[in-house]
Design a protein around this nucleic acid. Structure first.
Lengths: 141, 141
DNA sequence: ATGTTATCCTACTAAAATAGTAGGATATAT
DNA sequence: ATATATCCTACTATTTTAGTAGGATAACAT
């Protein structure tokens, strides 16, 4: 399951996606509109900024803006930054790989199955983007 | 990620699958051969028994046996018992559903994406079984 | 220059989940 | 009766999660 932090991150990102190309959005207004604890949101946006997804500006008229188009930001990237590994086992993780002590990775049946599961999940999460998460009334006729 | 407990559960189950149809297997011998802390393994096997996957027998000659064929035990079932929900959000979980406070489930884009991801993952985990996890040298020519 | 506004940074904390241990009760075979 | 093995309840240490608190820093306006 995704942590609450990750869910908040997605909400905030969708909010910023809806303001893509416009003026910066303040933490406080995201916090109020998306019902995310302000101080917690501060951390989240900072993490996303460090991961090069957001740009920020201090002082009056400042706030956060999405750095790339919502269509180019896939869900797997966000999850990895805020939530961590997507795979079900460390030994099948692409970005957070860790060897397991006992098993022979070539023959381990558990690993083999978890690899297939990972590929299936990733196929979705890497193809779908922030734009796919944006509500319908934004893609009006 | 799956908890260590879940990884232990899979190891133990594969071990029992290799002894399917034979005499009961003692906790202690699973513990030693699979390198799982004995007292922890006790809990795990008991959980699996309560979920009706295993049968147990006390006293000399006792131990655990797999109740159904390894081919009929799918991975999703095991994960749900020991690890919990497979879905990435409570609001898209089939077995551990919980409503989220804010969003309208009909239109929520985040939910929509997580539903697609869940289906992809589940397609694998519900089709693959313990038998698929068993090592190659057990399916000799 | 000096507020004002907003992000940035470090540290702290409470609660829950994870990964076990300990020790006795119970059932069964010999 | 005794040995063997599971069953059951309770406890504990560590890590992760979900935040809070408070000041430092940068940018803008007057």
């Amino acid at each position: 399951m995704l942590s609450k932090k990750t869910q908040y991150a997605f909400k905030a990102l969708v909010h910023l996606a809806e303001n893509y190309g416009k003026d910066p959005v303040k933490i406080s207004s995201i916090s109020i509109q998306q019902k995310i604890p302000l101080k917690f949101l501060e951390h989240i946006l900072n993490d996303l900024k460090k991961a090069d997804m957001l740009e920020s500006k201090k002082g009056k008229g400042g706030g956060y803006t999405l750095k790339v188009s919502p269509k180019k930001l896939n869900l797997a990237t966000v999850i990895r930054i805020i939530n961590g590994p997507i795979a079900l086992l460390p030994c099948v993780s692409l970005n957070f790989y860790e060897k397991c002590m006992d098993c022979d990775e070539e023959t381990c049946g558990m690993r083999k199955m978890m690899l297939i599961a990972r590929d299936a999940t990733l196929k979705v999460l890497e193809r779908k983007t922030l734009a796919d998460m944006m509500c319908e009334h934004h893609e009006k006729i």
